[in-house]
Design a protein around this nucleic acid. Structure first.
Lengths: 219, 219
DNA sequence: TAGCGAAAGTTATAGCTTCTAACTCAAGCG
DNA sequence: CGCTTGAGTTAGAAGCTATAACTTTCGCTA
């Protein structure tokens, strides 16, 4: 997976610089968050003047977009790797938690407060769908019974008309519902833990995570 | 609850300007988010020069801290009002969702990506505890049965040693656990909805919310 | 009521940011 | 070997936070 075509030396050099910039950007994000990202500072740390970077990225937003895309790619790869080695929902969830804890700012770049001007391009939504697909695969193994005349049943029925986001995945509406539930619950836990909202409370966030995961495995 | 003591005209003027600044700040946050907040722009919109505002707020962070405090206060008041008019968990959750949808950026200011330098002062953690208290009150009405030998039971036991965040609330460990669960699940739903992660998916977020709420009412 | 002191608001300035414009230089391709 | 293209430079505009020094204005008190 090196290159799609024969690259000219110029193209190779360009790709290398872009990668180097992104490395520095991730480093900067990991310490100061996305709002602390500075093209100028990156340029200086790379030994060149500020405006030089504008040869490689049109503006700050394009760099951030690229980072978000790489972030989604990283999460999707992490989940794929876990799933390929036979991980069930519990394994996937723990892989996701480890991935999030490894770089909280990266998690927030994807799932935190939306960047004001930023609008997700098609490529990121495609990878996002890939992530959901892994989750859906893990969901079909979970027995989920809809009680009659419940909001849950109504939502599953509602999902029958709005399942295009599953991209043809052969899951029951109940499984789709459950995948959404898993997503929102895990995000709620991780988001609050990473933001430090559990900090003064004393309990072990991992135990709360495991407890919630138990319910997600046997609804 | 006008004033604690007799205020001098200077103090009254000062308080009025501070309030006016915060009004403009909220307006700015509602449109551009917290990262787009500019003391300079606020000053100009108020007809004075940039540095003038530094007489009223030591720096940008102090203004943001104040806004966060007011945000927590606003949410706590909303929940108190709902609880006082007899709302159960469903009512509280819907009040919270309405509050969040009314100003998504305000929600993210409290529960979104943490501000890099910012560290919550005691006053905000106190109001945060107040919010949790309302949730706990609603929890004691919900029957929650711990299955033997489960991660859930183990976490409830773990909470017996870490319940100081409940500030002496007479709830069972199971109720404490359930309050945490409610918090994280509602946050997961609201956070993803407000950030627009459900946008392309077509389903009605409120129906998913109601479905989750049904489970939270009868675990 | 006069005046004094503190607070409010001003401009100037430093230092940071993003980003454009114009220029120089070097690398690579024909 | 030369020409084109792209990389990197400096200069500069416009914005931001924040400080310093100065002026004005307000309100309390003697």
């Amino acid at each position: 997976m090196a290159s799609t075509k024969t690259e000219t030396p110029r193209e190779r050099y360009r790709a290398q610089i872009r990668a180097e910039v992104k490395d520095h950007a991730w480093e900067q994000i990991a310490t100061a968050g996305a709002s602390g990202l500075s093209l100028n500072a990156i340029a200086k740390r790379m030994g060149m003047s500020g405006p030089a970077l504008y040869r490689y990225f049109a503006n700050r937003d394009e760099l951030i977009t690229e980072l978000i895309k790489d972030g989604y790619r990283s999460l999707a790869d992490t989940l794929h790797t876990a799933a390929d080695s036979g991980a069930d929902l519990t394994g996937l969830a723990h892989a996701m938690r480890r991935w999030a804890l490894a770089d909280p700012h990266r998690y927030f770049l994807l799932y935190g407060t939306p960047i004001p001007g930023y609008h997700a391009p098609d490529t990121t939504t495609a990878i996002s769908a890939e992530i959901m697909s892994v989750l859906l695969d893990a969901c079909v193994e979970i027995p989920v019974q809809p009680s009659p005349e419940s909001a849950g049943k109504r939502f599953a029925e509602h999902l029958q008309d709005h399942r295009h986001w599953a991209h043809g995945h052969p899951a029951t509406p109940e499984a789709l519902h459950w995948a959404l539930t898993i997503w929102t619950r895990l995000h709620g836990l991780l988001s609050l833990e990473l933001a430090g909202h559990f900090n003064g409370m004393g309990f072990d966030p991992e135990r709360l995570f495991d407890s919630e995961l138990e319910i997600l495995n046997a609804p």
